[in-house]
Design a protein around this nucleic acid. Sequence first.
DNA 1: GACGGCAATTTGGAGCTCCAACTTTGGGAG
DNA 2: CTCCCAAAGTTGGAGCTCCAAATTGCCGTC
Lengths: 241, 241
Amino acid sequence: MASSDPVYLRVVADIRRQIVDGSLPPDAPIPSRAQLTRKYNIGETAARHALRVLAAEGLIVGRVGSGHYVRARPALTPLHRWRLPDHAAPFGADLRSQGSPLTWDRRAEQVEATADIAHRLHLAESAPLTRTRYVVRSDGRPVQLAVSHEPAEFAETIPEDPPRGLIARLSSSGVKVTEIVEQVSSRVPEPAEIDTLALPAGVHVLHVERTHWAGDRPVETSDIVIPADRFRLVYSHPLHP
Amino acid sequence: MASSDPVYLRVVADIRRQIVDGSLPPDAPIPSRAQLTRKYNIGETAARHALRVLAAEGLIVGRVGSGHYVRARPALTPLHRWRLPDHAAPFGADLRSQGSPLTWDRRAEQVEATADIAHRLHLAESAPLTRTRYVVRSDGRPVQLAVSHEPAEFAETIPEDPPRGLIARLSSSGVKVTEIVEQVSSRVPEPAEIDTLALPAGVHVLHVERTHWAGDRPVETSDIVIPADRFRLVYSHPLHP
DNA sequence: GACGGCAATTTGGAGCTCCAACTTTGGGAG
DNA sequence: CTCCCAAAGTTGGAGCTCCAAATTGCCGTC
């Protein structure tokens, strides 16, 4: 962001922008190492780094002897492999419809959009929202915390059954709803999370950001947090750079 | 794998193994660049590359002025952002329980485990399996193909309702089932997929591998394939190396 | 017009070096 | 015993170079 960024990141940002906005279409050649050094007035090392990062992001492919090209469809980086333990709720929610022994604590309230949430829902800052907080429990033990935000205009009637939220309501009334998994990361829990999830000290959490869309309109964005001692990293997939 | 691999990948593989099997516990220091060059008899460039790759995989952190350390909990690489378009089925299956306008073609058959599937289910090769193939349609149009494999011993009674498979059955009978998303990737479709999904030429597919576990026993592994023209890459998250 | 082979170009591995910024450690002064 | 500073070590950016393997385009020959 800052102008004091490493030069190779400046090159990465420049080329990435061109790929995303389409000025560099699929299969278009990326300037070679030699051309980049001249064009941006940098050394070969920086040019190389830039190409390596773009390739690692899956936006370009290097073909030895030929050059680097924009990928027709960006390669998706493999996920780390993780699993939820036996007593936790799978994301796939297959259990929900089957009367599993899971319980939900739900609390909805009216709030104003923060900058982050406003951005994710394509709303103006401090727009009115319905904020719903689910704590999912198994055998009384909290296994998952989810906080979702919906534009207030959608919050008409709240159905009795906790897991049936806005998305289920929308889709049962014929609206096609789609889902984006935006980010998965592992991080240190916030104080409130330590409290509600009854976390021992030093336990990290898995954080998943999701957004549900009705057409091209985001209608709900949710943050799902699962304690690290309630999931387990099985295997880390090698990144082949 | 081969002994003709680049040397830096050999170092990566060696250190990764030590982290995964625990001989390098969380927060343990990784040998410095200088130490690695001596230990493995390589140049600084190779040592550097190895550390960079391990850091990009999220297994270690570099602290400038101090050293590289094993991460207490590996950092998960952010997903690319993608979305399914309006007419496709979301993975989250929230729609399933709500009477959505989706239909399933299902065909189950008895097969023998291939090497790949046997590995994923922790079975011997050519073990008997139930192979189930779902084609998910919306308005008659195929939007998703899922092929799942279950050990044959589990295939007692097949319920009438297609989406209620083994997993739903197990969990309704009190068994806690967990899910691992193993891999997400974009690739060229296979001929059979082109056929069943009615794919135009040149369209890639999004491929998701999942495994469901009952305790520490894998009970189902599935490959979900979605045509690229039925999902859309919204944004590619920068990898900060 | 077809073909074969050579030369230029390109990636990717690997080596070396210099330097700024930062952490850690140990020793000496007070 | 405490405090502070200086030296040593470490990461990460950046530069340069050499080379093997692969691709591509061109030129001359048949």
